[in-house]
Design a protein around this nucleic acid. Structure first.
Lengths: 244, 244
DNA sequence: AGAATGTTGTTTATCTTGTAAACACCATCT
DNA sequence: AGATGGTGTTTACAAGATAAACAACATTCT
């Protein structure tokens, strides 16, 4: 049994990356420093360099680690009942990935920043591609689909419209007054917000991220399936007059 | 006429941000330092701090600046001919944004990293929302649509599948051999690549980013329009059996 | 005009962070 | 036992952001 003095378990690349994951959970990727990771392992910062080439390498490994988790989660899934349409299979896969990703708020950004294309990422895309192939999609269509899904393929949608209320209490009153001030400058947004806020159908006061995610995912899967059924990778005939 | 000694034009926040944009064009956002920006203005680094609070503030301003350019470009667009479907109008807007964004390779990542929600961003989304409203979309649908489009709304699709060949020459021969080595581990990806590479229909050896972008965009617009026509924001009836 | 004041860029200094280099400790092999 | 190799530590430094004091000019007030 390998032991370093004082009975400490020996450092390994895996333990280093795991510690980095903990640190990221605690303070985010931005504030992650080599010293913080080392501290968590009760070790000096320089010790990490025996196991990772440099910080970049560590972050890459961290991103890959997350993808590993996605693959783990996907492997847990029961095989689909016979006759299940491929869209449902893909959908479930992506949603499971999302569950995992949401446990690490920093993960989407990190994975995206470092265009990680390691074994874990390849495995993920390979399995997802296989689902589409099995569903009868052509190679071209599978390819397009992977691009179209983008980060959604791993359960995350990069968006700007994160209108998550910032800090201060938003008690409807105050918000509406702020809104009316904006209504001349941004009439469409104001209208959108006002009408949505009006009927309380939305689960959470504002945007139900999960619902929005599924909305976009379903449109994409639906569109891909239509193209498959139409037998090509162009738009299905009788579509809505897009792509002039 | 305000003049500093030696006849240098005075620094302004705008000039600082413009310089930062130049530096970013030259070396990317990652390597952008305050000193580099200062150098470009023939000034000491600390001088910048009279005009921006700190580096974060500068980067935020830089992101907003890009969005300003999108708005400029959109303002150039001729009004749509009467009777043009809203999808075509939205499509053109988004594609114009893309043209602008592609002039600054660093822009997408930057804009995404800092969830910029300044005036320029609001203007962009307000104008785009207005297009959907005019097309007859409900407030709910507009809202969903903005989320579904995600970064695509500003002409950029965050994706992982950036299989841009890395550096070395890929002369088909060598690539295929590498592929066959992978074919056991990643059969679906291998199949996809092989079949696509086979017919040379793809413009650039690999992925035509523009085509992929439009593919995804069209699916989304099409799906949104179908939901509008169906009169709700749920999936249109008679769809393909998604969303169980 | 001349002094007070404000503005804007400069100098100097500090703190954080990544990482190289040399070193120290321990285990195993000869 | 002595050599060797792997692993963590200490020391040291360079890059970069930024605070603080300062300098030079412009503007304003008397």
């Amino acid at each position: 049994m390998p032991r370093t003095r004082a009975g400490r378990a020996p450092l390994t690349r895996d333990r280093v990356v795991a510690a980095a994951s903990d640190v990221a959970d605690a303070v985010g990727t931005q504030r992650l420093t080599m010293r913080l990771v080392a501290d968590r392992l009760d070790v000096e910062a320089m010790a990490l360099y025996r196991h990772v080439a440099d910080k970049d390498d560590l972050l890459d490994a961290l991103a890959e680690r997350v993808l590993d988790r996605l693959n783990d989660a996907a492997a847990q899934l029961p095989g689909p009942a016979p006759g299940t349409p491929w869209t449902a299979v893909a959908r479930e896969r992506v949603l499971v990935a999302r569950e995992v990703l949401l446990r690490h708020p920093w993960a989407p950004r990190l994975v995206h920043e470092r265009g990680t294309m390691g074994p874990a990422t390849l495995r993920w895309f390979d399995d997802l591609s296989a689902v589409l192939f099995t569903g009868g999609c052509s190679a071209d269509l599978v390819h397009h689909a992977m691009h179209a899904l983008g980060t959604r393929a791993i359960g995350y949608n990069a968006e700007l419209l994160d209108v998550t209320p910032t800090g201060a209490e938003q008690d409807g009153e105050e918000m509406l007054s702020a809104m009316s001030a904006m209504s001349e400058t941004y009439p469409a947004i104001t209208r959108m917000v006002a009408e949505i806020a009006h009927d309380a159908s939305t689960t959470l006061g504002w945007c139900d991220d999960q619902a929005e995610f599924e909305f976009g995912l379903d449109i994409l899967l639906e569109g891909i399936e239509r193209r498959r059924a139409a037998g090509g990778d162009g738009p299905p005939s009788g579509a809505t007059g897009l792509s002039p």
